[in-house]
């Protein structure tokens, strides 16, 4: 965040007389605001420092080369993180593949097409979706999706597409799979995707739509050439936000992914995402320092990826905004 063009409380000497009550309250409030923001920055820095410290310890002990190995045997000092990294990437990819088009099209409908009377009930339904605890999504995945994948989707898709594309091949059919986890995740990130995209589309001033429509543009043409064009930075930011959410989600994924330590090669394979690794092994790590380093390195990877995606998002948004002018 740039403070260059803003007056901060440190330099701002404008306002009420500092000796009056109003002035004192003014001063006090700016202090509180500063303390609040500094403390959140402090928390983030301590997390980053903790993760970085453990990552460095992990490297110091010479485990770094083993990160990309697929052997995970903590008792023998083998900390290959590849299966977990692969699991996280697979599941996130599936989740985004499903939620991206679905969320994007829903957002367009919600922002541009929906009759006014229908808007608020549907909006509250979508918000409700965002408020469901992730463990409930996990339960739903466990009770509904896992059997569905095992008994219906795997035989159906594996028997047809799976014969041609390895992506759909059924190697083990236990239902706990990348597909099940991906579907659960996609539903979890859908509300974020929809509300951020809808919000930015609605923020496009009406006068621009009118300009296009008055020239004889159809509603879709106005949406495509004006609204989407202007909203694209915000939509992109929403996609990144959903990506980071999907990437870091733990509970629901842990419940349906199967948690089998392999490098998956098909949608129907079980997987073991990084987040689940940390959550499941937390109790064991306390006694062995190198174990703790390995798990916190997994956390470090998650942190670095989400952090850099946020930075990239910021840069791209800034660029897109400039292009939109």
């Amino acid at each position: 965040m740039s403070l260059k063009n803003r007056s901060t409380f440190f330099t701002d000497r404008e306002g009420a007389n500092p000796r009056s009550l109003r002035g004192k309250i003014d001063k006090l409030s700016s202090c509180f605001l500063a303390i609040a923001s500094i403390s959140s920055i402090f928390v983030v820095s301590t997390i980053a420092a903790l993760l970085l410290y453990n990552f460095m310890k992990f490297c110091e002990q010479g485990f770094l080369p083993s990160i990309l190995s697929d052997v995970w045997l903590p008792s023998k000092g083998e900390y290959g993180l590849l299966p977990f990294i692969a699991g996280t990437l697979w599941i996130t990819a599936v989740a985004m593949t499903i939620s991206l088009p679905l969320g994007f099209l829903t957002a367009i409908f919600m922002a541009e097409y929906i009759p006014r009377k229908m808007h608020s009930p549907i909006k509250s339904l979508i918000e409700l979706l965002a408020g469901i605890p992730s463990v409930v999504y996990g339960m739903w995945g466990l009770m509904v999706l896992v059997p569905l994948v095992r008994d219906q989707l795997a035989p159906l898709i594996g028997g047809s597409l799976g014969k041609v594309f390895p992506l759909f091949r059924v190697n083990v059919n236990i239902g706990f799979s990348i597909l099940a986890a991906g579907i659960v995740l996609s539903i979890m990130v859908l509300p974020i995707m929809i509300s951020t995209s809808e919000e930015v589309m609605r923020a496009v001033p009406m006068e621009y739509r009118e300009a296009a429509l008055a020239l004889g543009a159809t509603r879709w043409q106005a949406t495509k050439t004006v609204v989407l064009r202007l909203a694209s930075p915000g939509i992109f930011a929403g996609i990144i936000l959903s990506f980071c959410r999907a990437f870091g989600e733990t509970m629901a994924v842990l419940m349906v992914a199967g948690n089998v330590i392999t490098v998956p090669s098909s949608l129907f394979d079980p997987a073991y995402p990084l987040t689940a690794l940390i959550a499941n092994h937390l109790p064991e790590m306390i006694s062995i320092p190198s174990y703790a380093y390995a798990l916190l390195t997994a956390g470090f990877i998650l942190f670095v990826v989400t952090f850099s995606f946020n930075v990239i998002a910021r840069l791209v948004v800034r660029r897109l905004k400039r292009m939109g002018q």
Partner: peptide, 12 residues
């Protein structure tokens, strides 16, 4: 039937 608005609204 073209239209010109009260506030100029050039597209960005």
């Amino acid at each position: 039937v073209g239209m010109v608005f009260q506030k100029p609204n050039p597209l960005p």
